[in-house]
């Protein structure tokens, strides 16, 4: 019999932390969101600035990857033209589950000021979007806030649920 009664539920009893698998998995997922470099127009400049040293995305665990197979977050930064729509869908399909999409800027949200024949009126016509980020262009702080909100969203999800792929339709 132990000399001291160990109260596992109180911290300080032993270096033991009790949690659920969900929380651990989501903690890992949400703090290492690797984003696909996807600058399409002027918003891409702000996205690059967010990744560079002044705003420093790395401290949130968000590292830009140049391959969709290594990325789980797609930041659609800029104007999506109709010519490019099939490629964004192809890149999205290549990303592994679970995956998330932030639509950055007015153009990606709704087509923005490009109310013309050549612009897709919102990327949500082509891929499912998790977070819409308003602004033209949103500042790097705004993009960082969006990523923090997305982290919260991920932490609230159940990690162990059967991986249901998101569907637009």
């Amino acid at each position: 019999m132990a000399q001291h009664q160990v109260n596992y539920l109180k911290d300080g009893g032993l270096p033991v932390a009790l949690t659920t698998i969900d929380k651990v998995v989501n903690w890992g997922r949400s703090n290492s969101l690797w984003a696909l470099t996807y600058g399409l127009a002027c918003c891409g400049i702000e996205m690059m600035a967010s990744g560079a040293s002044r705003y420093d995305f790395d401290r949130f665990g968000t590292i830009f990857r140049a391959s969709p197979r290594q990325a789980e977050l797609m930041v659609v930064a800029g104007t999506l033209t109709k010519k490019h729509a099939e490629f964004i869908r192809r890149l999205y399909d290549q990303m592994t589950e679970p995956k998330w999409v932030i639509s950055m800027g007015s153009c990606a949200n709704t087509g923005g000021m490009f109310n013309t024949y050549a612009t897709v009126q919102g990327v949500d016509r082509v891929i499912p979007v998790d977070l819409y980020l308003p602004g033209c262009a949103p500042r790097p702080e705004t993009l960082q806030y969006a990523v923090l909100l997305l982290q919260q969203k991920i932490r609230r999800e159940s990690a162990s649920r059967a991986q249901k792929p998101k569907r637009l339709m």
Partner: peptide
């Protein structure tokens, strides 16, 4: 043009 991306994808 209005249905281009939907038709194609």
């Amino acid at each position: 043009a209005q249905w281009y991306e939907v038709d194609k994808i």
